[in-house]
Design a protein around this nucleic acid. Structure first.
Lengths: 218, 218
DNA sequence: CTTGACACAGAACAGGTGTTCATGGTATAA
DNA sequence: TTATACCATGAACACCTGTTCTGTGTCAAG
C-alpha cells in the first residue's frame, strides 16, 4: 500500500532526525517539522507507518519510535562494523608484526570493515603490504591483509609462514605432508614449493585482502 | 581523571541501552538499572560523564543523551556504511553486467562496505569473479570487484575494458598513446599489451577488490 | 575543630509527552 | 441519499521527565 505524501515526510523526518541527533523525535517534534499542529494527526500517521512495518512503536514511552526495515540500516548507518588494528607495514624479508598478548587497546590506526565480511574479530589484525614481494600470492603493493593470529592451520588454508632457513615471511596455502610442508602459492598457475616442517612456522591465517585502487581525496 | 564504578556502570548502560533500543535512556531508566533511586544522583553523575567528554547532554530534552568519543562509533555500530549492488558474476569472455540507467533500486544482493573504503557510492556496482581468467590482474576466483561505471579513464587507472577483436573483457591499467592503447596487467612483472584504440571500450574503473579467504559459517 | 569539596538521597515543580475523545470534511460505493 | 472508510483538527488528561532545592554523610586540608 502506498504512503501519503505526509507519511513519507514523516518517515523521512524520523530517519533524518534519529541519524542526526542520536535519538528518535517526539510526536510534537515531528509535527513541528512536517507542518502538523495536532499531535493526534501525527499519532494517527505513525500508527499507519507502524502498520506498514516501516517503524516500530513502543507504547507509552517517550520517543518510543524506531525505524526498521531493510533500508533502515543503510539510512541510519546501523550495520554492524568491526574495528581491526592496523599494526603496520609488511615488506619482503621482514618479520611481520604480531599482536602481543597484553595488547588490549590499540591507539593507532584502525581498519573498519562490515561484519558481513568479518564475523568474528577475535585475534584479528591488519597489515599493509609494502612492495611487490607477494605478487605470487596475488597480493600487491598497498594491499591490506587481515589476518588471524594462530600457529596451527588446516590444510589448504592461506597462511603467513616464517621460513627459518630463508629468513623471510611469505603468504602461501599450506598442506602438511609427512615431515615436510607443501607451500602452494595462491596463484594456481604457479608450482608448489616444499619445505622442511621444522623450518616452517605459521604466524597467522589470512582472512581477507582488500585492495584499494583509487586513493581517496583527502 | 578516573571514573567511579558507578559512572562506568552508567556509561555502559547508556551505550547498551541505546544500541539495543535505538534511543537513549531517561534519567529514571538509568537509575533503575544501575540501582540509584534518586534522579538527582543520576543527573549528578551524568554531568560528570559529560564533563569528561564521554557523553553529550542536551538541556531540557527528554532522552537528551548521546554517547560520543572514539569508542562510541564502535559501541553503537554507527560507522557510516555504503551499500553497493552486487550485479552478478563475471567470467572470462562474457561481457560484464553494467548498471542500466533506470536502475534506481536494486532488490538483489548488496555488498556493505565502510565509507572509509568507499567515500562516494555514485555509479558504483560490484561483481564477483568466477574462474581464474583474471589472475594476471591479481584477481582470483571468488574475489569481489567494486567498479564505477564510466567510459573514460585517466592514464594509469585500472579499468575493465572490452576488447572488440578478441571479444572479451579484461582488467588492465590503461595508458592512451597516439592511436593505440597500452594495456598493462596489474602484475608489474608482466609485459604490457597494445591494442588499437578503436578496439578498446572502457566499461568502468576498478575502485576496490575484496578477497575473502575464509568462508563464513552459515 | 572547621571548612570545603565530593557523593548521595529524597522531594517537589514545571513543562514535556503519549494518549484519547469529540468533531468534521472528503471521497467512494451502495 | 446514505454509509463507510479515510484523513484531519483541537483540546484535554494523566503520566513522564529534566531540573532544582534541601539535607546528610564522608574525607582530606587548613
Amino acid at each position: 500500500m502506498g504512503l501519503s505524501e505526509r507519511q513519507q515526510k514523516i518517515y523521512e523526518f524520523i530517519s533524518k532526525f534519529t541519524r542526526d541527533k542520536g535519538r528518535p523525535p517526539t510526536i510534537r517534534e515531528i509535527g513541528g517539522h512536517v507542518g502538523i499542529s495536532s499531535t493526534s494527526v501525527v499519532n494517527y500517521n505513525l500508527n499507519i507507518l507502524a502498520r506498514e512495518g516501516l517503524i516500530q512503536r513502543e507504547k507509552e514511552v517517550s520517543r518510543g519510535l524506531r525505524v526498521v526495515g531493510q533500508q533502515a540500516k543503510q539510512l541510519l548507518g546501523e550495520i554492524a562494523t568491526v574495528q581491526i588494528p592496523l599494526l603496520g607495514k609488511i615488506a619482503a624479508g621482514s618479520p611481520i608484526p604480531l599482536p602481543t598478548e597484553g595488547m588490549t587497546k590499540w591507539d593507532g590506526e584502525m581498519v573498519a570493515l562490515t561484519r558481513e565480511l568479518i564475523p568474528n574479530e577475535e585475534g584479528l589484525f591488519a597489515l599493509q603490504v609494502k612492495g611487490d614481494s607477494m605478487i605470487d600470492a596475488l597480493i600487491n603493493d598497498g594491499d591490506v591483509v587481515v589476518m588471524k593470529k594462530q600457529e596451527a592451520a588446516d590444510n589448504g588454508e592461506m597462511c603467513a609462514v616464517w621460513l627459518k632457513d630463508k629468513n623471510e615471511t611469505t603468504l602461501k596455502r599450506i598442506y602438511r605432508e609427512k615431515n615436510r610442508v607443501k607451500l602452494q602459492p595462491m596463484n594456481p598457475t604457479m608450482k608448489p614449493f616444499y619445505a622442511d616442517a621444522r623450518d616452517v612456522r605459521i604466524q597467522g591465517k589470512v582472512m581477507l585482502v582488500v585492495r584499494q585502487l583509487q586513493k581517496l581525496p583527502a
